[in-house]
Amino acid sequence: MNTDVINPEQGNRKFLAKLEEREVDVQACYQCGRCSAGCPITEFFDITTMEAVRLAAYGMEDILLRSKTIWLCAACETCATRCPNDIDIAVLMDVLRELALRKGVEPAEPRVAAFHSSFLGSIEHWGRAYEIGLIAAFKIRSGDYTGDMNLGMKMFSKGKLSLMPHSVKGKQEIKKIFSGKGKEYER
């Protein structure tokens, strides 16, 4: 049973300020439901897109950070393009995922989080995505060693997965990008 109390008076002000800074005007929502109606993943969500916007307007960061929704959102941007109030819901989802990771909130969909960190790990290291390395990293992080094995072998035999990583020369620049000046979150 859901025991979360929704109390706007205890809304997280910092979170609301963050959304304002990213120009996501969650307060403009009048709950027409158009965002949820067009969301391709909605049947897999635990909080619908429209509910997520409303919870955000109340500042209910914790509930959102613990949700499956933020991880299952595919960033297709259908919701954001259709919102009659021009609320950038896809950016809301980006902000929530980033906050969840920064605050060390255990992802409700660990496989998805594992994919993102494997992918970024590959880019941080090589400057370009290295598919076999990323698949291996994902398998280790997710503990799923057998999933998509046939597919992987097929792709490999068709020469569509390169054994060798493609590395950039400007690795130092890439490192710097990842070390981040943390501008947005720290200053």
């Binding site: 980006d94 980033e98 993102h116 960190s117 970024l120 880019i123 501008k183 947005e184």
Partner: peptide, 8 residues
Amino acid sequence: SAHMTRHE
């Protein structure tokens, strides 16, 4: 993955 989890 980058813009979805690390905006900067």
